[in-house]
Structure formats: structure tokens, C-alpha cells
Amino acid sequence: MKRSAIIYAKGYTQDEAAPHLEKVRNYCLDNGLAILEVLYDETSHNLKDLNCLRTLYEYMSSKKVSTVIFVSCLPYDCIGSYIYQFRFLAGFETLKFHNGLLDTSMDKARKKKFVFNQTAIDEGLSVDFGNLVEVLSQDQDNLQFINREENARLLEEIKWKKQEAERDFNRDKGILGIVFDESNKSNMAKHVSRQLFIDKSGFADAMVYSGLCDLKEVLESKKYYKVVCDLIGFSDIDDLRDFILTCEDYVMEVQFDFGDLSSRDEYELLAILDELTGNA
């Protein structure tokens, strides 16, 4: 029985793919592969043509092809990498061509036990492919299959370990609250004290800003990991940039507000500064 193949051309128009496909057609002719269809996914990088993927899935799930050939103008492509992983599942041969040349680099890199993460394949290809991998992975000792529930548990475990590591890191370090008006100091002291218990920090202080030199001296005197500022009312934007960048030199996290802009999990700090200063 003659083997059959489907070709998935990524990143090319039909005209652009023609010279590369000629070499692939010659390979198929030499190796007894009948080409059933060429799918032209003209999207770039990790974008997806869902119609092409749906057609590919139908060929693979119905076992109408023995071989999937991925042809790409890109040296690395997320979709191609996931398709290529199917070569480790029973019943499928998958080949990668780049600029018309057969890529054999993955042959040397095969691990003793290959890991298939269903959630990653859901996102990289589609949920249909994630379901197909689950079926094909059954009773294969050389594969490790991580289903969606297990992946969610692992992500939660990673998150928990990261939080634990952050708490351990913060335990002997402090939070510095900075105000620009003496009347706000008591409120800032209460705020950073609450942050101390939330972050499991070692200590918290509050100070009134009186210049960059004094600020540097305070930051150098103790191990602070976070600086929290009240509403900044600087009229000199250059001073604002210097102030924030000075804090960043000493601590891991700087939180501040400027009008409607806030660095508290809303905007990247440097992006706000660029907007305020015109990237000066």
C-alpha cells in the first residue's frame, strides 16, 4: 500500500512556496509518498490559519495520511514544532523542511522520554489536537502525557513556590514609604505597615522626601526591596525621572502614582516615565 502525505506550507504564498515545494515533491517521489494536498498557511510566526489546521486535523484524526510534511520559511515556528512532536506518537511520520532542505536536527535531540503537555498543544494548535494527543498517548511507555487538569495543578504549584520564595526573600528586608508632604507621613506609615504583614517583610519605614542625596543615604542604610510613594506632585519632570530611577537602582519594586497613571499592576514603570517625559 502506497504511503500518503499532506504538506503544510507555513509563511509562504503559493507562488513563494513553489520553488521549495519542488524539492519536497522530489523527496516524496523518491520515497514512495503520494501527496494528497498542500495546505498554504500564509500567516507569519506563531499566528494560525485555523482552516488549514482544521483540515490537517481531519487528515490526521481519520488516519488518511501516514506522513505530515511541514514546510516553512521560518527557522523556528511554534506550530511546526508542535506538529513535529507527533512523530513520537504511534502511526505518524512527520518531516520538517526549511527553505527546501530536510531538517534532521531534531533526530539527534530526541529524549528518552518525550513530554506532551495537552494545554500547550491546545494553545499552539487547537483543542482538537490536544484531544488527539490524549488518545494517541495512551499506553505508550516512552511518553509522558500531562493533561489539562495536571497542567493547571503544576502551574498552581509553581505559583505557590514562587510566592514562598518571594516571602523568604522579603523576610529580612523592608518596605520604604516616601511622601512629599509631611502631613501624609502618618497615613503612609500605616499603609506600609499593612504591606509589611501582607508581604511577610522584615520591617517598614516612612520618610518625607527632601532630595536625591538624602534618599540615596536612606536606601543604602537598610535592605529595602520595595519603595511605595504617595501622589507625586513634582513640577520638574526631570527630577521625577531621576527620583524613580534612583529608587530602581536600590530596590526590586517601585510603586507610585502620577495623576491617573499608576505603576501598581497597571502600567510598566518606565513606560509611564517615557509618557510623562516624552522619552527625554
Rank of each mutant, 00 (worst) to 15 (best):
L132R: 04
V65Q: 01
H98Q: 13
Q140L: 05
G100L: 03
L36G: 00
C52W: 07
S126E: 10
S81V: 05
K108E: 12
D128Q: 14
H98L: 10
G91I: 02
D103V: 04
V133I: 06
I35D: 03
K64P: 06
V38Y: 02
L47Q: 15
C78Y: 11
S66W: 06
Y57I: 03
S72E: 02
L39C: 12
G100M: 01
R54L: 09
M60E: 09
G32E: 11
A109Y: 08
L143P: 00
D49H: 10
I35R: 06
E134Y: 05
Y76W: 14
L132P: 02
T43G: 07
A109G: 10
L39W: 06
E93H: 11
N131Q: 12
S61L: 11
N99A: 13
Y40D: 07
L74R: 13
S126Q: 08
T104M: 10
V133T: 07
G130F: 04
R87I: 00
L50Y: 15
K111H: 07
G130V: 07
D107N: 10
S137D: 01
C73R: 15
C78H: 13
L102R: 07
N31C: 04
L89Q: 01
Q140M: 08
E123R: 10
T94F: 06
Q85T: 00
G124D: 00
T55S: 13
K63E: 15
T67Y: 05
Y40S: 09
L132I: 06
T119L: 00
Y82Q: 10
K63V: 11
V133N: 01
E42W: 03
V65T: 11
F92Q: 09
A109N: 14
K108C: 04
H45G: 00
L143N: 01
D141K: 09
G91L: 07
Q138H: 11
L36H: 00
L102A: 09
L56S: 03
L125A: 04
L53I: 11
E42V: 13
A109E: 12
E93G: 08
N31E: 08
S81M: 10
R87S: 06
E58Q: 15
L95V: 01
Q144N: 10
K64S: 12
T94R: 00
M60Q: 11
F92V: 04
V65D: 03
D122R: 03
E37Y: 14
I69F: 03
Q118M: 09
C73L: 11
L74E: 14
Y76L: 13
L36V: 12
S105M: 04
S66Y: 01
A34T: 14
T55M: 13
V65K: 05
L136H: 05
T94S: 13
Q144D: 04
N31W: 02
Q138W: 03
S66P: 09
Y76E: 12
